[in-house]
Computed example of a mutant assay.
Amino acid sequence: MSRLLRAVLAAALLALLAALPTTASAKTTWLCKPGLASNPCAVGTGTTWLNADGTVKGPVNGPKTKATKQVDCFYVYPTVSDQKTPQATTRIDPEERSIALYQAARYSSLCRVYAPMYRQITLQGLLQPATVTTKMRDTAYADVRAAFRDYLKNDNKGRGIVFISHSQGTAMLRELLAKEVDAKPAVRKKLVSAILLGGNTTNKDFKHIKTCAKDTQTSCVLAFSTFNETPPANAVFGKSSGLGRLAPATGGTVLCTNPAALGSTKPATLTTIYPSTPFAPGTTIGALTTQVGMPTPTGISTPWLYAQAYSAQCVTENGVHVLKITPLPGAPTLKALPDATWGLHLVDANIALGDLVNVVLKQTGRYVARARA
């Protein structure tokens, strides 16, 4: 990829994470919702354990799916659409189904997952920022906001909520949480936690919602961007400069919460979980995921792969605050894509998915206990 194209990509992402909101939205189209006939977020928890080098170690018990799920998860997916226009429709394509499987489906053992389609800025729009208008960005956010209001009115019924997002999805949820949750006490009471990955969430985004410092804390935010090398000073992720109107002009520290060791800066081993099924073949993200370097053993009968192959700690280097991972003996060195300024953006949601699910399990228990008290 040329230096010019990389620069255009980075500049486009900065614009994408900037101002959003106010146009009306059409009726919600649900990618994931309880009861859908074809739901990419509803899969089993069968899991195969891999050694650090990617060879098969054997089966491992996945989490037991709770018979009665006492909280919901509201998931907003990242930039993934391969539609050949700058803004996507709400048509469900293979890439949206795959990203929901990769990033949200594992949580379905704990919560009912709701994931709306929204008219996001596509990969083509990201590459051609001059074709993207303010109205397009407004429309994307309006879809997410309308879907959340739809969910609150028709489906929530007083239940706690875990918010989950990545990249463009995190741009949407930073805005939504600030205006529709943090600013509204009755809705804020429903917040179990928010997992806002790869979107430069800062410690000044919210007035009332705190940063998660331990795994039994609720009504708090987990956030990080993953790198495996010292991030360059011009990194796209890990600093608040220029990233959206929610990043205060006076600064604000981009959050890094290590889900394997909340509240600590010491290294901790991550539990990586990702699907055994390749990401939608023939799509742009599908091609990129094959280049990152995650092991892809064949002949796996379970829907999930599990490995403990990396340690991680939150660091600040070159003024950039990130989750920096280090391979354990035998583990592959993952490749930054499209270049070093993006770090390991493509693995943010899965590199510590086992740890994130475990944190949500504990937070849910604490939330439900308090609600009953």
Score class of each variant (00 low, 15 high):
I99Y: 02
W304F: 10
D150E: 15
G58L: 00
L197W: 07
A194T: 13
A100I: 03
C111T: 14
T79M: 03
D53Y: 07
S165M: 05
T201A: 08
G35K: 00
A26N: 09
T55A: 01
V60P: 03
A247G: 14
E95A: 14
G251T: 10
N154S: 12
K362S: 12
Y107V: 07
L196F: 12
P94Q: 07
A183I: 02
A223Q: 03
G242E: 13
A331D: 04
G54K: 04
E180I: 00
L305A: 05
T226N: 10
P232F: 11
A371V: 08
C220M: 04
L255N: 13
T289C: 00
S81K: 00
I351Y: 04
P129A: 02
T250C: 01
G319Y: 07
P332V: 11
D53F: 07
N200V: 06
A235Q: 05
S240T: 15
S2V: 10
K135W: 06
T47P: 01
R112W: 02
L246W: 12
E317M: 05
V187K: 02
L101G: 03
T250I: 03
N156I: 06
Q363K: 04
N61C: 00
T47W: 03
A331Q: 02
T48V: 15
T289G: 00
D215E: 15
K335P: 08
P78H: 08
C212A: 11
T284R: 04
